[in-house]
């Protein structure tokens, strides 16, 4: 493969051939396992059964599907807001801590991040079942006399998804906060700003790219989330991913499933492009390292 002669073509500069040889496998892989399959699926959404936009019209015209779409948006937004409310203080303390405290917080964020989504979803299923811990707790403090139906509800989906997606919010915000030179805080203090004022006037605006980035990341991931809603949600109140799966696997309605994928992909792509400036994927990934 990498013949030495090939690389020496032009001194320090790599030749076009060498670059192609090195990047070829990558582009081929992405084409075979991403671009072509997705393009193929999307073409089905407009070409079958005949060249038509009918599949897309169905998504928006049929109130059942429009409701699913709306519900998906609502849940994703709720999860993002909850994640932000829970994450911001954690990220702030994490960025301002040193030593064992910093290690403890980081470990608490990273460990769930790297543990299986299925394990965490199963844990919520156990916690929320009829004779589970949450019901036990509610009965013990006298909030309810009967065990409540917590599992297979929208509430269960929102809580579990917030739990699963929170690290995606903490890490970008933490990254943005850590990038703010401490000198700015000192400068603000010299200018007469108290700690709260400094946070509000200096820290928060500077951390905004991280906050927006985290928010969008969580929102987009929640939009297309499959595992948690499928296992913890109510079949009567499904989200779009579950609907896609159902149309494809149970109704075998490929063109309609493809149209649903098309709608979801379009929404996600547009939002990503709009916010592409604040997205620093490498930093977000860096959090996993």
């Amino acid at each position: 493969m990498k013949g030495p002669g090939f690389f020496e073509a032009d001194g320090r500069q790599m030749s076009k051939g060498a670059i192609l040889l090195l990047m070829g496998p990558f582009f081929l892989l992405v084409f075979v396992a991403f671009l072509y399959p997705l393009g193929n699926l999307l073409s089905i959404s407009v070409l079958e059964p005949t060249p038509t936009l009918a599949n897309y019209e169905r998504v928006f015209d049929n109130p059942i599907y429009a409701t699913v779409l709306l519900r998906t948006f609502r849940i994703a937004l709720l999860v993002s807001i909850l994640s932000l409310v829970l994450s911001l203080p954690v990220a702030v303390l994490m960025a301002n801590s040193r030593g064992p405290k910093a290690v403890l917080i980081t470990a608490c964020i990273l460990l769930p991040f790297w543990s299986s989504v299925l394990v965490r979803t199963a844990a919520w299923a156990i916690l929320l079942q009829r004779n589970g811990m949450v019901n036990g707790f509610l009965q013990a403090i006298g909030l309810t006399s009967e065990p409540l139906r917590l599992l297979y509800t929208q509430g269960a989906v929102v809580v579990a998804m917030t739990h699963v997606l929170m690290p995606f919010m903490v890490l970008p915000i933490y990254g943005a906060l850590r990038n703010i030179p401490p000198a700015y805080n000192r400068a603000a203090a010299i200018c007469g700003a108290g700690p709260l004022r400094t946070f509000w006037e200096v820290t928060l605006p500077l951390a905004m790219p991280g906050i927006i980035g985290g928010f969008i990341l969580v929102f987009l991931t929640a939009l297309g989330y499959f595992i948690t809603p499928s296992l913890l949600g109510s079949p009567q109140e499904m989200m779009i991913a579950t609907l896609i799966s159902q149309q494809m696997r149970e109704n075998l309605d490929w063109p309609f499933a493809a149209a649903l994928v098309g709608v979801l992909t379009l929404i996600v792509t547009v939002i990503t492009l709009i916010f592409s400036k604040v997205f620093q994927f490498d930093r977000m990934m860096g959090g996993r390292a």
Partner: peptide
């Protein structure tokens, strides 16, 4: 090639896994 590379790199994780999964299932 940076821009193209990044688009190819990020694409599969920006698009929801469900979309990729369904597309791959068919293919």
């Amino acid at each position: 090639m940076g821009t193209l590379f990044q688009a190819f790199l990020i694409g599969p994780i920006v698009v929801p896994h469900i979309a990729l999964a369904v597309a791959l299932y068919l293919f």
